[in-house]
């Protein structure tokens, strides 16, 4: 397996406060990596730095052998990196179907899209995604009327429609019921292998279900990295999380 994403000494500092501190990360192709850590560990900031939403203070990000740090957001996205936000972001005044069609970015040129009336093109892809996230019955609903769980799935569906090589998922199960979380982990297990995923998550049961390797962040640095069992039993981790309960309670 070859590395698809590499972070080299990535640092983000606001004046005296360093949010992400000389952070290194290597993610291999087809892997599902979970990014864990307490609030303020720098997980979401790391996602922002990868996708160009925030500018890093120093360091670089390499995606498929190409330096992407410094590119604008849409350029980074066009390299093949999709992102789901922490607070679900969908186009509320458009229908589910229209949301997905916007996500199907065959071309991003405005003038080419003026003569694109969506007859047929990309149908199979949309069909697949709709089935995967289970919104078949909701295609003509305004997405502003969806339930919270459905909104999360729609956004996951939109990111999948883009067919990116790397998917960044920021708390995909936040606010979901247990059943909805179960369905989401099913979706993720089906994505593994085909896509490379980085998932920020708090729900340990969910992480156990899906993760290959966990990177545990603390104060902007890697505290531990490895499979779940190994990370859980790491003495450093236990120290940070104060003792015997392990990371389950703290997260």
């Amino acid at each position: 397996m070859s590395a698809i994403l590499e972070l080299h000494g990535v640092t983000k500092a606001y004046d005296a406060y360093t949010v992400v501190d000389n952070f290194n990360l290597t993610v291999n192709e087809g892997e599902l990596r979970c990014l864990l850590g307490p609030n303020g560990a720098g997980k979401t900031t790391t996602m922002d730095l990868i996708t160009g939403r925030q500018k890093m203070t120093s360091g670089k990000v390499v995606f498929q052998g190409r330096k992407i740090s410094g590119m604008s957001e849409h350029r980074i996205c066009q390299q093949g990196i999709g992102r789901k936000f922490q607070i679900p972001a969908v186009f509320k005044d458009l229908t589910v179907q229209e949301n997905l069609r916007v996500a199907l970015t065959r071309t991003t040129n405005p003038f080419m899209n003026m003569i694109e009336f969506g007859r047929g093109s990309g149908r199979e892809r949309l069909q697949q995604v709709v089935e995967l996230v289970g919104l078949q019955e909701r295609l003509d609903e305004l997405s502003g009327n969806l339930s919270h769980g459905e909104t999360q799935w729609l956004e996951i569906g939109m990111v999948l429609t883009q067919n990116p090589k790397l998917l960044l998922m920021d708390e995909p199960t936040a606010g979901m019921t247990e059943q909805e979380t179960q369905k989401t982990s099913d979706i993720f297990n089906r994505l593994k292998g085909e896509h490379t995923l980085i998932v920020v998550e708090h729900d340990m049961a969910f992480v156990r279900e899906i993760a290959d390797i966990i990177t545990l962040m603390h104060l902007g640095k890697t505290l531990a990295e490895g499979p779940m069992d190994q990370v859980e039993n790491d003495p450093k981790v236990r120290e940070v999380y104060l003792g015997s309960e392990g990371i389950t309670d703290a997260a």
Binding site: H74, G82, V90, F91, D93, T105, T108, P110, E116
Partner: peptide
């Protein structure tokens, strides 16, 4: 009714989301 039309409405609803789908929002 073209895709352009849907995209500009998407940008109206949430320009950040559109940007992270790969659209050059300012251009649109």
């Amino acid at each position: 009714q073209s895709k352009f039309g849907t995209i500009i409405q998407a940008i109206r609803d949430d320009s950040e989301r559109a940007r992270f789908l790969g659209y050059n929002v300012a251009f649109y």
